[in-house]
Simulated scan of single mutants.
Amino acid sequence: LDGFWPSLSLSLQIAVLSSALSLVAGTLAALAIARGRLPGATALGTLLVSPLMMPGLVLGIALLQYFRMIGLTATWSALLVAHLVVTLPYVARTMIAGLSRFDFTLIEAARTLGCTYAGSVIRVMVPALAPSFLIAGLFSLLASFDNYPVSIFLTDVRSKTLPIRMLQYIEEAPDPTLAALSTLILAGTLVLLLISDRLVGLHRMAGTAD
């Protein structure tokens, strides 16, 4: 498995960072949309989730042409921006659904009891939206880590994400190595689900996804 470590490291870096950035940007956008105070909120919501409606190959080619046009040649940076485009819709869609069920008067009630605005958000909103945060983070993390159709247009010989490296390996030297690696990835996914169940419960996550 030694030959896969650079690709695994690259995929993890891109997945974690793009998911974190998506959580911040997607939550802020969802807040603006859910509160209904932003002009064109409906159009913004449609724009945020539009990448989900596009074939991955089309999105990958469009991003490749755009990066060439603006002169972005760094593979790592291009992958990060592209995966941000891929993961942001998952976060935005999940957070909009979660915030649509949140009672914002609870924040005002907390403020009347002496909390600052930031304190009321941290003590009231964040715990209430924990399932939404968790499921959005998981969806975006897995969507980035497993992405192939967009990444294939942006990698180079030295920098390849794990899905691309695995596909090339099976074409060049098919052996049980890929089966072992796939088992490890599946085990890691199950561990994430178990941790999520411990933190907020899978039934609450399923309710948020609906």
Rank of each mutant, 00 (worst) to 15 (best):
E171I: 06
I135G: 00
P6H: 02
D210I: 15
A97M: 06
T87E: 00
H83R: 02
A179R: 05
E172F: 05
I14P: 01
R204A: 11
S144P: 13
Y169T: 04
I14K: 01
R123D: 15
A206S: 14
L31Q: 08
Y148T: 11
L184Q: 12
L202D: 10
T87M: 03
I195G: 11
I107Y: 05
T87L: 00
A110T: 06
L162I: 07
T208V: 13
L59K: 08
S159I: 10
A32Q: 10
E171V: 10
L48N: 04
A62V: 03
L31R: 06
S22D: 04
E108C: 00
L88A: 09
V86H: 00
I164Y: 12
G71W: 04
F153Q: 09
D146S: 14
V85W: 02
I170H: 14
L10G: 06
D175I: 01
G26W: 05
L186G: 02
S159H: 15
A97D: 04
L8E: 02
A110E: 09
M205V: 13
G3T: 08
A97F: 03
M166N: 03
S11V: 06
D146A: 13
Q13D: 13
A92T: 04
A20D: 07
V86L: 12
L199H: 13
P163Q: 01
Y90A: 02
T46P: 00
R93H: 09
F67E: 07
Q13S: 12
L31T: 10
M54C: 15
L138F: 14
P131D: 05
A34E: 05
G3K: 13
S120L: 04
L28T: 09
T73R: 08
A143D: 08
M53I: 14
A92V: 03
T27I: 05
A130G: 11
L31M: 12
R37P: 07
R93K: 15
T42F: 08
G207F: 14
P176M: 11
L8I: 09
S50C: 12
S19Q: 09
A62C: 08
I164A: 03
G188Y: 04
F4G: 06
A82I: 06
W5A: 06
L199Y: 15
S120W: 08
L47M: 02
G56V: 05
A15V: 05
R123H: 14
S132H: 10
L80A: 06
P39L: 10
L167K: 07
L134K: 07
L44Y: 02
E172R: 15
D2V: 10
L113A: 10
G98Y: 01
S100N: 06
L99C: 05
G3W: 12
L202M: 15
A34T: 07
L79E: 05
L21D: 02
G114E: 10
S22P: 01
T75N: 05
T183S: 14
G36R: 11
G3I: 13
L202N: 11
L129Y: 02
V86T: 03
L38G: 02
D210C: 11
A78M: 09
R204P: 00
L134W: 03
A29D: 01
I164K: 08
I164P: 09
Y90P: 02
L141S: 03
L129G: 01
L17R: 07
V24A: 12
F4P: 04
D197C: 09
I107M: 12
M69G: 00
A187H: 06
L178I: 15
E171N: 08
L1E: 11
L202R: 11
V58S: 12
T112N: 07
F145Y: 13
L138Y: 11
